[in-house]
Simulated assay, not measured.
Amino acid sequence: MKKKIALLTVLFATAMYAQAQTSQDTERITQACMNYIEGFYEGDTLKIKASLRPTLTKFGYFKNKQSGKFEEDGYMTYKQAIDYAAGVYAKKRFPKADAPKVVKILDVSYNTAAAKITAWWGTDYLLLSRNGDNWIIDQVLWEGPLVK
Rank of each mutant, 00 (worst) to 15 (best):
M1P: 10
K3G: 07
I5H: 11
V10M: 11
V10Q: 05
V10T: 13
L11N: 00
A13L: 15
A13R: 09
T14Q: 08
Q19W: 06
Q19K: 11
A20K: 08
Q21R: 14
S23A: 15
D25V: 04
D25W: 03
E27V: 08
R28I: 10
I29A: 04
I29Q: 06
E38F: 12
G39M: 01
G39I: 01
F40Y: 12
Y41Q: 10
E42I: 00
E42T: 02
D44P: 10
D44T: 07
D44K: 05
T45I: 06
K47F: 05
K47D: 04
I48G: 07
I48K: 03
S51R: 03
L52K: 00
L52F: 11
T55F: 04
K58N: 15
K58W: 14
Y61T: 14
N64K: 05
N64I: 04
F70V: 10
Y75M: 10
Y75N: 12
K79V: 05
Q80H: 05
I82K: 05
I82L: 12
Y84S: 07
Y84D: 04
A85I: 04
A85Q: 03
A86F: 05
Y89H: 12
F94A: 07
P95Y: 05
A99F: 03
K101Q: 14
K104T: 13
K104I: 06
D107V: 00
D107T: 07
N111S: 10
T112W: 12
A114C: 05
A115R: 05
K116M: 14
T118W: 00
W120K: 12
W121M: 11
W121T: 12
G122K: 03
Y125A: 11
L126N: 02
L128W: 02
W135E: 08
V140Y: 00
V140Q: 03
E143Q: 15
L146V: 13
L146D: 15
K148L: 13
K148I: 09
